[in-house]
């Protein structure tokens, strides 16, 4: 194939995945959350069980007036959603979907690249919170930044453990070195990674930065219309990225029966199951307090991930 055409196709493919999967997760959240609370959820938009609810939401968002408060810092305020959103889009390209090079791009430092880019998104929240000229938003921004910083570290450490096991930081390389017994071996690391990822995405029960009952909606209070929609999209894209990454790192990605032909399906299924867990946790647990959150990261997750590193290192040296 023409190399330029190939590149453009890959880029567009990533964009399509970026548009479709977060919406799917969002719709699944509507429905799963509703049924877990004994409700039906959206039923009208699109006819069959309200499948087009989020499309309708999108249409509504585009038509809404875009308000920038007079006191706000206009440029920074308008730029913030883009800064929050784009890292997740770029990250998607490095996540392997299936065997035989079924991946957007084989980034050699893939794991490191993904973690670094995901950390950039917090700048969006900080910018939004500061530029809103709103006390609650500023507080929300500070909270989200502090939360990101507290949880980025266990995430890094847990990811390092997998990199140790595989001896590489390339995501396809990781998967080709994968064996089934890695799942129990890296279990603690996987749990730490997933939990820390949830906190980094500010998903319940780690959603103090947007706690609507105490600081309205944190950094996003002043946003309307399309810019608000972009923040929401960033959250759901973040869920997709986190779940895909967890399944690649700890659950073997495309590995599974008949992975040669339907490997991509395994990735999707594992990602979907993890996304379900994300929603399930949201429905089941109340929000943690800010101090509990920080304490949890520093006194539980980090020691656990250090232990996992020690375990991985010892096992690896013994078996090699």
């Amino acid at each position: 194939m023409n190399p330029t055409l190939d590149m453009v196709l890959r880029a567009v493919g990533v964009l399509v995945v970026f548009m479709v999967l977060p919406l799917t997760v969002g719709q699944a959240e509507h429905k799963v959350m509703a049924h877990m609370q004994g409700r039906l959820g959206p039923m009208y938009a699109g006819g069959f069980h309200g499948w087009a609810q989020l499309v309708a939401d999108g249409v509504k968002f585009v038509q809404k007036e875009d308000i920038v408060p007079t006191g706000a810092d206009r440029r920074v305020f308008q730029l913030a959603p883009v800064v929050a959103l784009l890292p997740y889009l770029v990250v998607l390209i490095a996540i392997p979907v299936g065997p035989h090079g079924f991946v957007g791009a084989t980034v050699d430092a893939g794991l490191f690249f993904v973690l670094a880019m995901m950390g950039v998104g917090v700048l969006g929240s900080l910018m939004a919170g500061w530029a809103s000229a709103n006390k609650f938003s500023l507080l929300g921004a500070l909270r989200s930044a502090a939360q990101l910083m507290a949880y980025e570290l266990p995430m890094l450490l847990a990811a390092a453990s997998v990199a140790m096991a595989a001896g590489t930081v390339s995501l396809p390389g990781l998967l080709s070195a994968f064996h089934w017994w890695w799942i129990p071996w890296q279990l603690v690391g996987g749990l730490v990674f997933f939990t820390a990822g949830l906190a980094e995405l500010q998903r319940p029960p780690f959603d103090m930065p947007v706690a609507d009952s105490e600081i309205i909606f944190g950094a996003y209070t002043e946003y309307t219309g399309l810019r608000f929609a972009l923040f929401l999209l960033a959250e759901y894209a973040g869920i997709v990225v986190l779940c895909a990454l967890t399944s690649v790192l700890y659950l073997g990605g495309w590995h599974g029966p008949w992975s040669g032909s339907v490997g991509w399906l395994w990735t999707l299924v594992k990602t979907g199951l993890l996304a379900f867990v994300v929603i399930w946790l949201r429905v089941s647990y109340p929000r943690l307090r800010e101090d509990q959150l920080q304490k949890f990261a520093w006194t539980v997750l980090i020691p656990l991930s250090l232990l996992q590193i020690a375990l991985t290192g010892i096992v690896k040296v013994v078996i090699s």
Binding site: A34, M36, G38, W280
Partner: peptide, 21 residues
């Protein structure tokens, strides 16, 4: 307790909803 919380929501999901259209 955490597991119990998860079980409650999962059980509710398998039951019929109470919503009236």
């Amino acid at each position: 307790g955490l597991a119990k919380g998860l079980a409650v929501t999962l059980r509710t999901m398998t039951r019929r909803t109470v919503t009236q259209q």
